[in-house]
Design a protein around this nucleic acid. Structure first.
Lengths: 251, 251
DNA sequence: CTCGGCAACTGTTCTAGAACACTTAGGGGG
DNA sequence: CCCCCTAAGTGTTCTAGAACAGTTGCCGAG
C-alpha cells in the first residue's frame, strides 16, 4: 500500500462536492444519499476516507447519518455560526440572505476604554456600519481595527468589501475569535440608525478577532435587533447557532 | 485481520478514561498528553482508533490537538452547555455555583398556546420556580410537563429534586432538546420575583425537551437576568456556551 | 553569536479490507 | 391477516500499517 497524501485532502474535496450537490438541489431534503459503499466506489476512495468526508458534511448540518437506514439530507437551516471567522455580511450572504451594508463613518480615533483594553492600545481605525437584511436595518456594528492594520484598510469601500477581506488583501490573516453576547435595551443614536424606538430589546455582541500571532486585530461591538436573530441550540445538530428570523427576510 | 467490535466501542472507553484522567488532574491544563503513538500503544489499539477517542475528547473541549506539536489539555471552562439534557440547577451546581431553588407554584393547568403548540396538547403540569445564585434571584423558570408525565412528578419537592431527576425516577428518559434564546425586557410579575425593576434587559430561553420516542416531554420558558449570564463563543473551543457571570456568584 | 540544515518528534491522511449492529422487506407458515 | 425468520441492505468499528506535513531542537559552519 503506497499512498500519496495530496495537498488538498481527498476527504475535503469530496465533502465540498457533496455539499455543492446538496445545495444545488441534486439531493433534496429528506432524500437518502447513495450508500457509503456506493459513494466510496464512485469517488474512488476507501470507506474510511469517504466516511471522513461524510463526517464533515454532517458536521455542517447538511446530512444526518442513520445506522441501518442511510444518510439523509436535512432541511436547510440558515445559521450564523458565532465562531465564524468571516465577516457578518459574508455569512449572511452565504445563507442566501439579502444583505446591504451602509457605512456610517470611518476614521482613526482613540479607542474607548473597553476596546482599548482588548486591543492593548487605543490607536485604532473606527469603522461604523449598519447591516440591512432585506432592506431593513438589523445590525449596527462598530469595529476597531488596531494599528497598523487600521491604516492598511482605511481607504476601503466597506459597502462593497468586508473588513476581513480587506485585511486579507494585506496578508493579515485572522486565526481565532472570541465573542460574547448579552441582552440590552436599544438607546441613543443607534436606535435612530436602526430605525427603532428606544427601549427595544436587543442583543449586544462583543467580539475580538486575533491574528496568527495571537495578537488582537479587530474588536467589534454589534447591536442586533432581537427580532432579527435568535440563538438556537439543538442537540442533534452541530451545536449552537444564531439564526436569522425568517420574518426579517424579505427576499 | 480478525477483529471483534465490542458492545461498547473501544474508542468510547478510551475517551472516557482520558476525560477522567484530565478532570482528576493527572493531566493539567497546558500540559501535553503523551503522543498519539504512545497512547495507542498504551491502550493497545491502532492509531486510527485512538484518534477517534481523541476526537471525542477534543469535541468535549478537554484537549486541543495541534499538528506537529502535540495534544494539549485546555483550561477548564465552566459552562452551561445549552444543549445539555440536565436540569438548570444541576448544571450550575456542577460548576460549583451555589444554587437554591424556590418553588413559586405547581399545578395542573391548561398550557398556554405557545407551550401547547410545542407539547401537542394543553394538558400539562405547570412548575414555576426561581433559581437563586449565591442567594440572589437570577432565573425565573416555568416548566410545562406533558401529561401523563406531569401527574407522575406532581408531588415532588422541586426545591430539592430537579424535574429531570424526578422524571428519571419514573423511567422517563429525555433524549434531545432544542432551545432558543432571545433578548427581552423584564416586566410583569416576573420582575418582582427576580427583585428587579421593570425594563431591565434579560434573556428569554424557550426550551423543548424530547423523550426517547421523539415526543416532547417538557417545555420550559426561562427568564434570565442579563448580568447573570452571557453567551460566549471561542473558535478554539467546542462552540458556544452560556457562562454565569462571576459577578453574580457570591460563594 | 546567528543562521541554516537535518533529524526526530508531532499530528494527519489514506489504503484495504473484515466483522458487527441495525433496519427493512419479503416470503412462508399458522 | 399476522407474526416470525431470513436475507439483503444500511452504517459503525476496528485492524495494520505507510506516507506526508508541521514543529522543534540540536549541531555545525560562517
Amino acid at each position: 500500500m503506497n499512498q500519496q497524501v495530496p495537498r488538498e485532502p481527498k476527504y475535503h474535496a469530496i465533502a465540498a462536492d457533496l455539499a455543492t450537490r446538496i445545495r444545488s438541489g441534486e439531493y433534496r431534503p429528506g432524500q437518502a444519499l447513495p450508500s457509503q459503499r456506493d459513494l466510496s466506489a464512485a469517488y474512488g476512495v476507501t470507506m474510511m476516507t469517504l466516511r471522513q468526508a461524510l463526517q464533515v458534511v454532517e458536521d455542517d448540518g447538511l446530512v444526518s447519518q442513520q445506522p441501518g437506514r442511510g444518510t439523509f439530507v436535512t432541511e436547510p437551516r440558515a445559521a450564523y455560526q458565532l465562531d465564524s471567522l468571516r465577516g457578518l455580511a459574508e455569512d449572511l450572504r452565504e445563507q442566501g440572505h439579502t444583505v446591504r451594508t451602509e457605512v456610517v463613518g470611518v476614521g482613526t480615533r482613540r479607542a474607548p476604554a473597553w476596546a482599548a483594553a482588548e486591543l492593548g492600545t487605543d490607536r485604532a481605525l473606527r469603522v461604523e456600519r449598519v447591516r440591512l437584511l432585506g432592506g431593513r436595518p438589523a445590525v449596527h456594528q462598530v469595529s476597531w481595527v488596531r494599528q497598523p492594520y487600521g491604516s492598511m484598510v482605511r481607504g476601503v469601500d466597506f459597502t462593497q468589501v468586508s473588513l476581513y477581506a480587506a485585511l486579507s488583501e494585506h496578508d493579515v490573516v485572522v486565526h481565532r475569535a472570541t465573542e460574547r453576547l448579552r441582552p440590552a435595551i436599544l438607546e441613543g443614536a443607534i436606535a435612530g440608525l436602526l430605525r427603532q424606538a428606544q427601549g427595544v430589546p436587543v442583543f449586544v455582541s462583543d467580539r475580538v478577532t486575533y491574528g496568527m500571532d495571537g495578537e488582537p486585530v479587530v474588536v467589534d461591538r454589534a447591536t442586533i435587533l432581537g427580532d432579527a436573530m435568535e440563538v438556537r441550540a439543538e442537540r442533534a445538530a452541530t451545536g449552537l447557532s444564531l439564526r436569522w428570523m425568517s420574518s426579517v427576510v424579505v427576499d
